[in-house]
């Protein structure tokens, strides 16, 4: 855990103890199968998304009725859809949408939720009460339902999906950040900072905040998988990505009608969602194991 000394002089140079901590983190991370597996999946996904146009063998929007609903083959490893488009290409390009929404929404949620949570946790009292009751109220709605409602108001569009999901996941981040901040508030380094006469905002953002990052990171990476799933659900319901964009959820929606005659239309996008969700979940779980101070203590 950080000490006052470190934070005071270690802002720009990496101290020996920090280097040790990073090395320890990497060592533990690498020995944690779950974390490594999740990490590899996520890295793979990101690579696929970044290089999607190079990987996808066919254009994804041009329809070709003669080749509709073809079973997987060498030419079309995942088959073709009802309009003759190559499903492999669409699934590959679809990873961009999923990651864009997953990272976008959770970055938004982190930006707002972390500040709210840390401020609430550090300030306590009435500020804490007000902020957290608002968060509780937002959490009282089932996530997808709330996102649906927001989208009906905002209009169906991918960027609106990000806004809606960021809103939906903000309270989850805020809660975790608050409990972390609560724990940090009573640490000696905070008392020292107060004694030094540092301003509240400086204490919150420079002292407490960096020390709450670990649980936020864990929660964030878990929530990325929920956000990916939520995007798929919303697109499935027609409120997310609009055709002809190759959103996995949208592809499943279309494929559902062809379950009997062309099951591959459903199968591959569903697999892709499954892999992405499992990847981020394992990464989140693994990170928690690695970062958990209790585990550290046992070690």
């Amino acid at each position: 855990m950080a000490t006052e000394q470190e934070t005071d002089r270690g802002r720009f140079t990496i101290t020996q103890s920090q280097r040790d901590r990073i090395a320890r983190f990497v060592r533990k991370f690498r020995s944690n199968t779950k974390a490594m597996l999740g990490f590899s999946i996520v890295v793979m996904l990101v690579l696929v998304a970044v290089f999607a146009p190079l990987i996808a063998p066919y254009p994804i929007e041009q329809t070709n009725i003669e080749d509709r609903s073809q079973a997987p083959s060498v030419e079309h490893p995942f088959g073709t859809d009802d309009l003759g488009r190559d499903i492999f290409s669409r699934v590959v390009m679809g990873s961009r949408i999923s990651l864009y929404v997953g990272f976008g929404a959770i970055s938004g949620a982190l930006a707002v939720g972390a500040v709210v949570g840390v401020v609430a946790g550090y300030a306590g009292g009435l500020t804490d009460e007000i902020l957290m009751r608002v968060m509780d109220a937002a959490m009282a709605f089932p996530p997808v339902l709330l996102a649906l409602t927001l989208l009906v108001v905002l209009g169906p569009d991918l960027s609106n999906v990000i806004i809606a999901l960021a809103f939906v996941y903000t309270p989850y981040i805020a809660r975790v950040s608050r409990s972390a901040a609560l724990a940090e508030r009573n640490e000696a380094y905070v008392e020292a900072a107060v004694a030094r006469g540092e301003s509240d905002s400086r204490i919150v953002f420079s002292e407490v905040f960096p020390n709450c990052m670990a649980p936020m990171l864990v929660q964030g990476s878990l929530n990325v998988s929920f956000a990916i799933l939520a995007e798929a659900s919303l697109s499935f319901l027609g409120l997310g990505a609009q055709p002809p964009r190759p959103s996995w959820g949208l592809m499943i929606n279309t494929g559902r009608g062809f379950m009997e005659t062309a099951p591959w239309m459903l199968l591959f996008p569903a697999l892709a969602i499954g892999i992405a969700v499992v990847g981020f979940n394992m990464l989140g779980d693994g990170l928690r194991d690695v970062l958990d101070p209790k585990v550290e203590a046992i070690e």
Binding site: E61, T63, L83, P243, P244, T254
Partner: peptide, 26 residues
């Protein structure tokens, strides 16, 4: 669904001359 399918084909074809039809399912 038939109209959604039709719209996808129309939008893809129209895009070839720069007519960009942005589908919005309602």
């Amino acid at each position: 669904p038939t109209q959604v399918q039709a719209a996808e084909v129309i939008a893809a074809d129209a895009a070839e001359v720069g007519i960009n039809l942005e589908i919005q399912q309602i």
